[in-house]
Write a protein that binds this DNA or RNA. Structure first.
Length: 347
DNA sequence: CTAGGGTTAG
C-alpha cells in the first residue's frame, strides 16, 4: 500500500487533481467535447492507476448526458476489473448491450482478464469460448491471459491442452507463453515434460530466453533440495549451456543458485557466487543479499551477517524491512539461547 | 483519433 505523505504519492495526487480539474471544465463547456476527448482523459487517468476516479468521471458523464461508446465503456469495465469488482464490469457489459453499443474483442478480453485476476478461471474460459463462438477474434495475449490463469491455479494438464489448442487454431505461441507453461510444469515437479517443451521451443524458431533458463535451473535445484543431491552441478552446467547460447545469467539466475547453496548450509559457496558475480560486473540486489544474510544467521554467524549488511551499504544497496527482520530475529534467538544457558548454569 | 492483456528468484 502506498504510504501517505510519500513524495511520489503527492506527485500522483497532483496529477489526478489535474485530470479531475480538466474533467470538470470539460463537462461545463457548452458544446461538450466529443467522447473521444473524454476517452483520452479517462485513459490518462487509468495510466495513473486512479480507477475510482475514472468510475466517478464515467458516472458524471452519464449525468450530464455525454453519450458513451464502446471505447469509454471498455475503459470503465477495466476500472471495475482492476478494483476487483468484475461483477460490476459485467453490469456495464449488460448496459452496453441494452443501449445498443456493440462490445468489441477488447471489451471481452478486459473482462476475461478481470476474471483471471479473481482466479475465476472456468468463468473466464467460458467467456472466452463464448466470444469465439460469436465470431470475435481473441488476440495472442487473450490466450496468454487464460493460460496464465490455468497455470496459476495449478491446472497444468488443462494448460498444456490449451497450449495445443491455440497452436491448432493457428496461433503461434511466443516465448512468454512457453515460459508460462514451462514454469508451471517445473513447479508441479514435471521436469521431464518441462524439458520436452523446452526442446520443442528450440526446434520452433522461438529462442529460449533468460527467463526460460531461470525456470529450468530453479526446477533442477528444487529436485536437488527434495530428493536428489548433487543436481546443483547440473544447474551450474545449465548456466554454461545458457552462456554458450549467448545468454548471460542475471541476478535472478544467480539468486536461484545462491538460495540452493544456502538451503544446504553451504554459505561459503553461496558467498563465492556473489563475489564472482560482482567480478563479472553484475550487481547483486537486496533479495540476493537477504538470502545470504539469513543463511549466515541460521548458522549462528550473526556478526558475519552484520558484516554483509555493511558491505551492502557500501555498495549502496539499502537493506530493507526483510533484512532488518532477519537480523532482529537472529538477535532474539541468540538472546534466548544465552538466557537458556544462564538458566541452566544457575540450576 | 480513443480502449484491454501475459513470464522468473525472497
Amino acid at each position: 500500500m502506498p504510504v501517505k505523505g510519500s513524495p511520489e504519492n503527492y506527485d500522483r495526487f497532483d496529477k489526478v487533481d489535474e485530470s479531475l480539474n480538466l474533467f470538470n471544465k470539460m463537462i461545463q463547456k457548452c458544446p461538450k467535447p466529443s467522447i473521444v476527448e473524454f476517452t483520452k482523459l479517462l485513459g490518462a487517468t487509468v495510466r495513473m492507476k486512479h480507477y475510482a476516479a475514472v468510475v466517478y468521471m464515467c458516472s458524471q458523464m452519464d449525468f450530464v448526458g455525454v453519450p458513451h461508446d464502446a471505447y469509454s465503456l471498455s475503459v470503465l469495465i477495466n476500472c471495475f476489473c482492476q478494483l476487483g469488482q468484475t461483477d460490476f464490469g459485467f453490469s456495464v457489459l449488460g448496459k452496453m448491450i441494452k443501449i445498443g453499443v456493440e462490445p468489441s474483442a477488447v471489451t471481452f478480453s478486459t473482462l476475461i482478464n478481470g476474471l483471471c485476476k479473481q482466479r475465476k478461471i472456468s468463468q473466464a474460459a467460458s467467456l472466452f469460448d463464448g466470444m469465439v463462438e460469436k465470431g470475435y477474434q481473441p488476440h495472442l495475449i487473450t490466450y496468454s491471459t487464460i493460460l496464465n490463469g490455468l497455470c496459476k491455479t495449478g491446472d497444468t494438464r488443462r494448460a498444456v491442452r490449451f497450449l495445443r489448442m491455440m497452436e491448432a487454431r493457428g496461433f503461434k505461441p511466443d516465448i512468454v507463453v512457453y515460459n508460462t507453461v514451462i514454469d508451471c510444469l517445473c513447479k508441479c515437479g514435471l521436469l521431464k515434460e518441462a524439458l520436452d517443451l523446452f526442446s520443442e521451443v528450440k526446434v520452433k524458431d522461438n529462442r529460449p530466453n533468460i527467463i526460460t533458463f531461470s525456470c529450468l535451473i530453479h526446477a533442477i535445484i528444487l529436485i536437488d533440495a527434495f530428493c536428489k543431491d548433487g543436481l546443483i552441478f547440473q544447474a551450474v552446467d545449465t548456466i554454461h549451456t545458457m552462456r554458450k547460447q549467448g545468454l548471460e545469467p542475471n541476478v535472478v539466475t544467480y539468486t536461484t543458485l545462491v538460495d540452493a547453496y544456502c538451503k544446504k548450509g553451504m554459505v561459503f559457496e553461496a558467498k563465492d557466487i556473489v563475489d564472482k558475480m560482482r567480478k563479472q560486473g553484475i550487481q547483486p540486489d537486496v533479495v540476493m543479499y537477504n538470502i545470504l544474510v539469513d543463511a549466515y544467521c541460521k548458522k549462528g554467524m550473526v556478526s558475519e551477517a552484520e558484516d554483509i549488511v555493511d558491505t551492502m551499504r557500501k555498495q549502496s544497496i539499502e537493506p530493507n524491512v526483510v533484512t532488518y527482520s532477519i537480523l532482529a530475529d537472529a538477535h532474539c534467538k541468540k538472546g534466548m539461547i544465552s538466557l537458556k544457558l544462564k538458566a541452566s548454569s544457575t540450576q
